[in-house]
């Protein structure tokens, strides 16, 4: 049956409309759960708030387990899903740059737009920074291109590259996540409480 759009259950033209609806909903949830506060986001690095880690780990788990079940029962064809292509060094360098920006500013690109929507000045500065970064990158694209397009590994998943059975992978991943939640809770209790 699924994925719905490639299999024609929902007409292709609805693609953008659905994307906008999901985007609005996503932004609302981010704002509602306090992710438009840079102090909450940065908390994960200083050890006083692990909400970011928990939320994103949980989201990944729910999606992973849900998709595996739906694939197993035949509601969804996993092979038709889009797998993000891996450009190894591009991803590593980009990840480091993004991580530094995350710690320094306390926003990731998505939440920064949320914060702009509620009128935070630091977020506005942050977004201007993003635009400047994009501009520099596009201007120097020829310089970055070998890294940007190189080290192409194909549309691989962790399960492919590690060669593990995907069900076992999901199970182990769940255990790791829950251990991480428990550990983060313990760390939070030891760190001095910060009110923000």
């Amino acid at each position: 049956m699924g994925p719905l759009i490639p299999n024609g259950v929902i007409p292709y033209e609805w693609n953008n409309i659905i994307a906008i609806l999901i985007g609005i909903f996503f932004g609302f949830i981010l704002e509602a759960s306090g992710f438009s506060s840079s102090r909450k986001l940065a908390g994960v690095f200083y050890g006083y708030d692990f909400a970011v880690l928990k939320v994103f780990f949980t989201a990944a788990l729910v999606a992973l387990i849900g998709i595996l079940y739906m694939d197993y029962l035949g509601y969804l064809n996993m092979e038709q899903l889009y797998i993000h292509p891996t450009y190894l060094w591009g991803a590593i360098i980009g990840g480091v740059v993004m991580g530094v920006g995350f710690v320094a500013a306390g926003f990731c690109p998505g939440t920064s737009l949320c914060a702009v929507a509620i009128g935070k000045i630091d977020a506005i500065v942050y977004v201007i920074g993003i635009m400047a970064g994009i501009f520099i990158f596009s201007e120097l694209y020829t310089l970055f291109e070998p890294i940007y397009n190189g080290y192409f590994e194909g549309n691989i998943t962790l399960m492919d590259s590690l060669g593990v059975n995907r069900y076992w992978f999901a199970f182990i991943f769940t255990i790791i996540a829950i251990v991480a939640f428990a550990a983060s809770d313990m760390i939070r209790k030891r760190v001095k409480k910060i009110f923000y």
């Binding site: 993000h84 292509p85 450009y87 980009g94 993004m98 990731c108 690109p109 998505g110 940007y148 397009n149 192409f152």
Partner: peptide
Amino acid sequence: KKMPVEGGC
């Protein structure tokens, strides 16, 4: 050739 895809967090 596969088109490079924009993306990321």
